[in-house]
């Protein structure tokens, strides 16, 4: 399937620079590093837990660049009042993970 990723190139650039600023190790950010950033959004912890659940596609407890972009995308949408989905819609799955 060839659906464009909902994360736009300019958003991806922004998320990538946040990713890099958090000091990824081996291209991955651990939960310890991502958690304070998501908590900064002031969203309820149960919402953030779901954001993590949806973003950590391989369930390894760490986020790579694309997974992190999904997390940030969901957080930004949630801040705009959009509900966080219960499961990840196909357009939100990074092309590298399909």
């Amino acid at each position: 399937i060839d659906i464009p990723w909902v994360v736009k190139p300019e958003e991806k650039m922004k998320f990538d620079s946040i990713f890099e600023s958090l000091g990824p190790v081996g291209g991955m950010l651990t939960g310890d590093k991502v958690k304070p950033v998501l908590l900064n959004s002031k969203l309820p912890v149960d919402i953030l837990g779901r954001v993590w659940e949806l973003s950590d596609l391989d369930r390894d407890g760490m986020l790579d660049k694309d997974e992190f972009s999904v997390a940030m995308y969901l957080v930004y949408r949630a801040l705009e009042g959009e509900p966080v989905p219960m499961s990840l819609p196909p357009p939100l799955v990074p092309p590298s993970k399909r």
Binding site: G31, D32, V34, K35, L38, V45, D46, L48, G49, W52, E53, D56, R59, D60, G61
Partner: peptide
């Protein structure tokens, strides 16, 4: 690293 039980990979649980 994370507490046992539930989703151990989720830092928010």
């Amino acid at each position: 690293q994370y507490p046992a039980g539930g989703s151990s990979t989720n830092p928010f649980l």
